[in-house]
Amino acid sequence: MKVNRINLPARLFSTLLLFIWTVCCVYPLIFSLFDSLKDNQQFYSGNAWDLPKLPLLWSNFSYTWTNYNFGYYFLNTIIVTVGSMLLALLLTATTAYVLARFTFRGSGLLYYLYLASLTIPTLMLIVPMFFLFSDLRVNNSYGGIILLYSITTMPIGMFILLGFFKSLPRELEEAAIMDGASLYGVFFKIMLPLAMPGLITISIINVLSFWNEYQYALVLLSDAYKYTLPIGLAFMQGEMQYRIEFGPLFAGLMISTIPILLIYIIFQRRINEGIVAGAIK
């Protein structure tokens, strides 16, 4: 893209603003890391922005991991996130493929039904969901949460993947059918591999939202050993009114953040693509 003239003061001003916002985005993470290595004394006597004193209290992390059960939360979050990601892939890709390639009675209706559900404020569903989970006896079970999570992101994922499948040439499928491949064979052996970039994109977006999910987990998980990281961290924050342990609290914050931040940094480009695909309707 051709780039324009922009005068020096405007350039300096813009650079300054970009710099300030970079600091605003990065510095809170850095001071969280610093503060996770302090003891209470350093919070009482020093400033929030002071560097942690030596020796660094890495023990805050192991303390949070065992005493605040973050070991459980971490494992639960991984199980729920990975399970939901895989199931969401299956539910989303199959529907997207059929809607992209076949017309049948009700196919248009189904498409608009899924699309319309994007406008529902999901908060109104926490009450019925709570009772649905007790009716199905899946409170505090990974299975229930995984089913729920994978279907909540299905409509937007379906929308992104649908575009992907539509952009793939039909000739490949036709040739494979000629060669005697079944419809299932065409989907699993030809279409899925070709749609891999799209599958990765929706998976990354899904992983971000599953890892951080709060409102359903809050009402559906009551057993403290089944908490996911966001619920565990919120619970720990609540505990701070009885005993102040800022260092371990920040350690908990770091444990909740570092894995997902790494995933973001590694797959950053894919996420950008996904946003573009999902939002430019």
Binding site: M1, V3, N4, I6, A10, R11, S14, T15, L18, W21, T22, C25, V26, P28, L29, S32, L208, W211, N212, Y214, L229, P230, I231, L233, A234, Q237, L249, L253, S256, T257, I260, L261, Y264, I265, Q268, I271, N272
Partner: peptide, 29 residues
């Protein structure tokens, strides 16, 4: 996009950091 700045990829990546965080992490912070 239009100012011909350098390092646009870096800014784009970094400015998205807060969006990656759980709302609970943001609130605790």
């Amino acid at each position: 996009t239009r100012f011909g700045m350098r390092g646009t990829g870096f800014y784009r990546a970094v400015f998205f950091f807060p969006n990656v965080l759980s709302i609970v992490v943001i609130a605790v912070l």
